[in-house]
Design a protein around this nucleic acid. Structure first.
Lengths: 234, 234
DNA sequence: GGCGCTTATTGCGCTTGCGCAACGACAGAC
DNA sequence: GTCTGTCGTTGCGCAAGCGCAATAAGCGCC
C-alpha cells in the first residue's frame, strides 16, 4: 500500500496529470488503487484485454513485443513516474505489448470504467493522454527510421545513449546504466543478436569506451559513443 | 474549392469526427479551409512547425522520414478520408515526417489556433484524436516488430498485402495496388533496397504470384503471398 | 516517331552480421 | 569452498542481401 501523500506526489510528477487543477488531480488520486508486483513478473501481457492503466511509482518496467517465431523486441523501458498501459483509455482495447518488471514495482492503477468516468469529467485528461501518446509515437517513428537505415554498431551506441539519458547515474568512472540488462536484452533493444552485442561491447571495452559486467554497463567515454552514433557514414 | 456539402460528406466519413454530434461536426466543417496541391509536391516537410492539421479529401499522400545520410523510410500511405498531420493538435509541435502528394490532392485544413478552440469546445475531439493516434501507434509497433525479426522477402510480402488491403482494387487478374510506387518506394516501405525488391518481384512474377509494371503491382495469387508472409520460418 | 532521360533488371562479388559450438566466468545454493 | 546452472565470449564458417555496373525497357517530349 502506498500512502495518500505519496500517491499525490507521484501523480503530481506524472506527465499525464500536468496542467490539471488541484481538484482534478485529487479526484484522480483517490480513484487509484495500488499494485505491487515482484521482479521478473509480468504486469500484463500482449493481447490481454486492457483493463487498467498504470502509473509506475517505483521500480522499472520493460515493454516488449513478441513475434510468432518466439523472437522479441524491447520497445521501451519505463521509469517512475511514467504511465504504463495508457492504451487502456480506449474502449475494448487489448494491450499491444507486454510489461515486465525488471525490479519489484509498485504502481497506481485505474481500471477501465473509472478511467472512462474521469475522462468524461476532466476532458483535459484526454488532451494530456493525447500529448503523451503522440510523444511516444514520434519517438517510435524516429527509432523505426534508425532501425531501417543504420548499421548495428551505431544502433547499439544509440541504445546505450538513450538508456544513459533515461536512467543514467554518474559514477566515478562514467555514467552507469542502472538497469539489469542481459546481452540478449540489449540485442532486443538494438535489433541484433546477443553475439554481436557481446563482440561490440568487448571491442568498446578494449577501446576504453565502456566497462560492462554481466548486468551493468558503464559508459566511460560518452563523447566517443556519441561520435559512433552520429558521425557521418564510414 | 470544395463545396460545403462535399466537405460535410468527407468529415462525416473521417474517423476524427466519429461520434460527434451533428452540431459539432457542422462547426468543424465551417471552420475548414480548402487546400489543393499538385502531384509530387510536399504538403509539409519534416521539422517544419506544425501549423495545420488536414483531412485528405482527394488524392493520396505518402508519409516519409529522412535520415541524415539521405536515405528515407516510408511510414504510411494516407487515403481519403483520413487525417494527415494530426500532430498539429499539440502546442508547439513540429511535423515529425514529410507528407508528399503521390497524386493531385485536395484537403480540408484547420490551422492550429482554430483547432485549439475546437478542442476546447468539443472535448470529444481530443478523445477521437487520441483513438486515432493510438491506433497508428499500435500499427507502428507491429511494423517495428516485423522489421526487426523478419526477413526481407516476408517484409515485402507484408507490405504488398497491407497496401492491397488499404488501396487494393479488384481487377480481372487479381488485386491492383492503385498507387504510383517505384521499386525504390517499395524498398523504403519494406526496409530493403530497390535491387532486392526488383529481384523478389521478378521471382514472384515468374511464379505467377504478382504482375508488375513500372508503377503498378497486381497481386494475382493473394493466398500465396499470405503464405509467404505468415508461414512458419523456413 | 524518334530521342533522351529516368527507372528497372540482373550478373557478380563482397560485406555484414548471424549463429553454431566450445569454452570460460560468474553467482547462488548448501 | 565446491558444485551447478546460467550467461557471456569468441573462433569460424556461412548466408542474406547489398550495391556496383552494364544493359534493357518504358515514358514523356517536341
Amino acid at each position: 500500500m502506498v500512502s495518500l501523500s505519496e500517491r499525490q506526489h507521484i501523480l503530481a510528477a506524472c506527465p499525464l496529470c500536468a496542467g490539471l487543477t488541484a481538484a482534478a488531480r485529487e479526484e484522480l488520486c483517490v480513484a487509484t488503487t495500488t499494485h505491487s508486483i515482484a521482479a521478473h513478473a509480468y504486469l500484463f501481457s500482449e493481447d490481454e484485454p486492457a483493463n487498467a492503466c498504470y502509473v509506475l511509482a517505483q521500480g522499472q518496467v520493460r515493454l516488449s513485443k513478441l513475434a510468432a517465431t518466439g523472437e522479441q523486441v524491447i520497445l521501451r523501458i519505463v521509469q517512475p513516474p511514467e504511465p504504463v498501459g495508457i492504451i487502456a483509455v480506449l474502449p475494448q482495447a487489448v494491450y499491444p505489448l507486454s510489461a515486465y518488471a525488471l525490479r519489484p514495482c509498485t504502481l497506481l492503477a485505474w481500471d477501465h470504467p473509472t478511467l472512462t468516468g474521469l475522462i468524461e469529467r476532466h476532458p483535459l485528461l484526454a488532451v494530456r493522454a493525447l500529448h503523451l501518446v503522440s510523444g511516444r509515437f514520434i519517438e517510435l517513428q524516429q527509432q523505426y527510421l534508425e532501425r531501417n537505415v543504420e548499421r548495428v554498431e551505431r544502433r547499439l551506441a544509440r541504445t546505450l545513449l538513450r538508456l544513459a539519458n533515461q536512467v543514467g547515474r554518474r559514477v566515478p568512472d562514467g555514467v552507469l546504466i542502472d538497469l539489469p540488462l542481459s546481452r540478449q536484452d540489449l540485442a532486443e533493444m538494438s535489433g541484433t543478436t546477443l553475439y554481436t552485442v557481446s563482440r561490440t561491447l568487448s571491442r568498446w571495452e578494449q577501446d576504453g569506451i565502456v566497462a560492462s559486467t554481466r548486468t551493468q554497463v558503464v559508459i566511460c567515454a560518452p563523447h566517443r559513443l556519441v561520435s559512433i552514433a552520429d558521425d557521418l557514414p564510414k
